[in-house]
Design a protein around this nucleic acid. Structure first.
Lengths: 203, 203, 203, 203
DNA sequence: CATGAATGAGGGTTCATTCAT
DNA sequence: CATGAATGAACCCTCATTCAT
């Protein structure tokens, strides 16, 4: 009835044990991604998502208690995919290689679906969603890598946050500009990352 | 009978000749800033802005042909203020000092009204508004400063874009986290900026 | 955020598959007719129509993409009804009888809901709606009948247009004056129609 | 404040004794005509009229108590001009010539500013305006001419009304179609008029 | 008297959400 | 469980009219 719900949990309503529901949920989330990509925030509404997913609006609400839950699910999916790739950084031998891998993962992720990544970065910042989307693991991962790459750094958490911001800023801007040269972008991001570390680190 | 919006310019509808309306326009723009700050995009609607400005909705539409025009005006106001400060960088003796001044200006601007700055950065990216908000001067300014600070750099425009993205990314994140330590933030942003330049520049 | 109407089709949004919605659509169109009749163009707004139809404004917009589409639907309904009756003219033996039947149909249609007929005649002329309401069949029908009633006429299409205008002018004026005497009106319209033909036709 | 005033006189607020006001009033009425012609009913609003007339909206309300008064003034102007021309019919020798003159006047009037004439015919029909625009003289004039052209007619008033309706219907339709051939149109209208009379008149 | 800034009721339209089937 | 018709609060915007200057 109203458009302003008060307070809802963002978790999916049911843990889909059956593979059928699982598939439905996945298709809805992917539809959300596509709508966001093609129509932007303007056209991102539940009816459009349901239509694109080929399910009824009722079904959508069967699996997601509200629009925000859908957004959160999408963010979680993308973050998860990114995290999965990024974690591989820990398998690298050197700290430098690990950090380089991290940068590469970020650039890859961004240039794959630039619009989507950018829009989700924005959505993530919405106060209503903050905290719901656990970026904690990501931060920890980056911190760990920073510790290995720059062991002398006095504030690795701060550095991790800064590096995250730097990389996000650069890749989002690249996406906005429509850059397609992955190699070049990665080189520049590395320059920023290692430049920052060399200057802010004690050693 | 029907609506016929078609193509709306973003320019104000009438240049306020009388001082009365000048004040009205200014109060509307400031109200827009406040609403955006306190309510976010969710609560940013023309009625709320008019109410906060203490004028009728009709008055708002006398000066702004639409909601977007209001947003644009706000962006322009903030960009203008920032640019005014940032231009002073050109008065610095050395290229390094100029770049440092630029960073300082960005940090100051950001930490003054963090939410506002962040939200406007987002709004600026909206396809409908791109190009309406001339960020060209800003880019040129940064490019000029980069040329002076790193004369050997092969692609000063690219570097300018990257620096812009780095600084924006860092200060927005800081604003989001609620950082208040201007000094510390500025130090870190400097590290990023000069670190990037030293690594990406030829010399 | 912004509105983006651009080019709206006048066709109903969804062809009602279920009988429930079929009834809803019909009730909305009839409500539109009643509002137009009782309140005139001044009071003809979507909210009033929805209220009179006993449905929510949202439902109205599920079936009609806009106010104009509703108007068009109403025009089509009335035109269709009229056309259905008028087509029977073709079953008459003589051309004269056919033309007389046509006149009778027009008079009947008009005096049944005089206000409605008159207002729709006006609405039909709105540039935005021209062409959307296919009056082509009507014109063709009249032309056919004219050809049979006055085979020697050099410009049957022109005559058809004129006769249409004459009849419409007379019945609308009668409706405006509140005439109720069907017989008398029909007699006069016949006089005009056959008078025109006898004078403009070659023979 | 509100858009729905209750009951206002339609007479101009002041009889402009001074020629300055007279000129202002005239310019406003002509502006109204132009706006109606170029923008249609959709764009016919007081602000637009004032702008086109080159006067302030305040001045417009100085001379016309409301929008309807302006419409009425415009209708009166056009009716007056038409009536002035049409009255010359009475100077004709024969009744037939008088009626022919009448038809000619109507056609001329229509084809001079077709949109305007058509729109005013519609506006004239608005219940709120009926009676305010004295079409009585016109009716009397036509009746007089009918009496002379068809002395044996039993109901000259009815015939006058019908002829009026016929002519209006035909010329409006012609205007709508964009007909420009004055001669041809006049010939056809004559056919309708005299055809009607010959069939409805006793003799 | 002229001006035009200001007003605000009203009207078109969207979309998150519910619920009967 | 799925469906999709129905709901209505909320939002954008216009324009007739007023009134302080």
């Amino acid at each position: 009835m109203s458009q302003r719900p008060s307070h809802k949990p963002f978790r999916p309503r049911k843990t889909p044990a059956q593979s059928r529901s699982e598939a439905t949920v996945a298709s809805i989330v992917e539809a959300a991604a596509q709508v966001l990509e093609t129509e932007g925030f303007e056209g991102f509404n539940t009816n459009a998502v349901a239509r694109r997913a080929g399910v009824s609006i009722g079904s959508l609400y069967q699996y997601f208690p509200g629009k925000d839950a859908l957004t959160v699910a999408l963010i979680r999916r993308e973050t998860g995919r990114f995290y999965e790739d990024a974690s591989l950084a820990l398998t690298r031998r050197s700290g430098k290689a690990a950090l380089e891998y991290l940068v590469g993962a970020a650039v890859r992720q961004q240039l794959q679906r630039p619009m989507l990544a950018r829009l989700l970065d924005i959505a993530e910042g919405r106060p209503a969603l903050r905290g719901e989307v656990g970026g904690v693991e990501m931060e920890e991962l980056v911190t760990t890598v920073v510790r290995r790459a720059a062991p002398k750094h006095e504030r690795p958490e701060v550095a991790a946050g800064d590096l995250f911001a730097i990389v996000r800023g650069m890749v989002d801007a690249a996406g906005e500009r429509g850059e397609r040269d992955l190699e070049d972008l990665e080189r520049r991001v590395r320059a920023a990352v290692f430049g920052y570390l060399s200057r802010s680190s004690a050693a």
